[in-house]
Amino acid sequence: MNKMHDFEASLQVLRGSETDITSEVNVIKTAVASANKRTAIRFQELNQKKFRMPLILGIGLLVLQQLSGINAILFYAGSIFKTAGLTNSNLAACGVGAIALLATGVTTWLLDRAGRRILLIVTSSSL
């Protein structure tokens, strides 16, 4: 907030009138300056070579997810089970959610063990 004099005076009172605070002031000023730097990626920077491949892969994975129709199945699971003749379709839909949660846990464990690339290849080829 550009109140350096107030900041230094407050720090001097906090540390004591006989304490040298110059090194601490410099550390705090450096930390504040680095925290105020903008870390967001601008749209023009996405065209750089280092961002191109991860961006294409991420968008490709999202497109594959949308094309698989999984969102429609999850959103209408209760109606689908009801149409299929299940008496307790909401419980079945909760079962689908529980299985999805379990599968997420197993996938997370597998990611640590096998690596992302091989799992990505295997799951993409099964579509």
Score class of each variant (00 low, 15 high):
Thr19Tyr: 05
Val13Arg: 12
Arg38Val: 15
Gly69Gln: 07
Gly60His: 08
Gln65Ile: 05
Asn26Trp: 08
Gln12Asn: 09
Val27Trp: 13
Val96Glu: 02
Val106Glu: 05
Thr87Glu: 09
Phe75Thr: 03
Ala40Phe: 15
Val13Glu: 14
Val13Gly: 05
Ile21Phe: 01
Ala9Trp: 04
Ala92Trp: 00
Thr19Pro: 14
Arg116Tyr: 07
Leu67Glu: 03
Ser10Thr: 10
Ala98His: 02
Leu110Glu: 01
Ala31Trp: 05
Thr30Ala: 14
Val27Lys: 14
Gly85Asp: 00
Ile80Thr: 05
Leu120Gly: 12
Thr108Val: 15
Ser68Gln: 07
Val32Tyr: 01
Ile56His: 08
Arg52Met: 14
Val96Gln: 04
Val32Pro: 03
Thr104Ser: 06
Lys50Phe: 13
Leu11Ile: 04
Ala100His: 04
Thr39Asn: 12
Val63Thr: 14
Ala72Ser: 08
Leu86Thr: 00
Val96Lys: 04
Gln44Cys: 11
Thr108Glu: 00
Lys37Glu: 08
Ala72Asn: 09
Met4Leu: 12
Leu86His: 02
Ser125Tyr: 12
Thr104Val: 04
Ser68Leu: 05
Ser126Met: 14
Phe51Asn: 13
Leu91Arg: 00
Thr39Ile: 13
Leu46Ala: 01
Gly58Ala: 11
His5Glu: 14
Ala35Asp: 12
Arg117Ser: 09
Ala84Asp: 04
Val27Cys: 10
Ser23Gly: 07
Leu14Ile: 07
Ser89Phe: 01
Ser34Val: 07
Ala93Gly: 04
Ala9Phe: 03
Arg38Tyr: 13
Ser126Tyr: 09
His5Asn: 13
Thr39His: 11
Met4Arg: 12
Gly78Asp: 07
Asn90Cys: 00
Leu120Ser: 12
Lys37Tyr: 01
Ala40Leu: 15
Ile118Val: 13
Ser126Ala: 09
Lys50Asp: 15
Leu55Tyr: 07
Leu91Tyr: 03
Gln48Asp: 09
Leu61Pro: 14
Lys3Tyr: 10
Gln48His: 14
Val27Ser: 11
Arg116Glu: 04
Thr123Ala: 12
Ala33Trp: 03
Asn2Val: 11
Gln44Lys: 15
Phe81Gln: 00
Val63Phe: 11
Ser17Arg: 11
Lys49Arg: 13
Ser89Cys: 02
Ser23Ile: 11
Ser79Thr: 09
Ala103Glu: 01
Arg15Gln: 10
Ala72Thr: 09
Ile70Gly: 06
Ala84Pro: 03
Leu74Gln: 05
Ser126Asp: 03
Gly95Trp: 03
Asn88Tyr: 06
Val25Arg: 08
Lys82Asn: 10
Thr87Asn: 09
Phe43Gly: 01
Leu102Met: 00
Gly105Ser: 08
Ile80Arg: 01
Met4Phe: 07
Gln66Cys: 03
Leu62Val: 14
Ile73His: 01
Ser126Ile: 15
Pro54Arg: 02
Leu101His: 00
Ile59Lys: 06
Gly16Val: 06
Gly85Tyr: 00
Thr39Cys: 08
Ile28Tyr: 11
Leu61Met: 13
Gly97Arg: 06
Ile121Pro: 06
Gly60Ala: 12
Val27Asn: 10
Leu67Asp: 02
Leu119Ala: 10
Leu91Asp: 06
Arg42Thr: 15
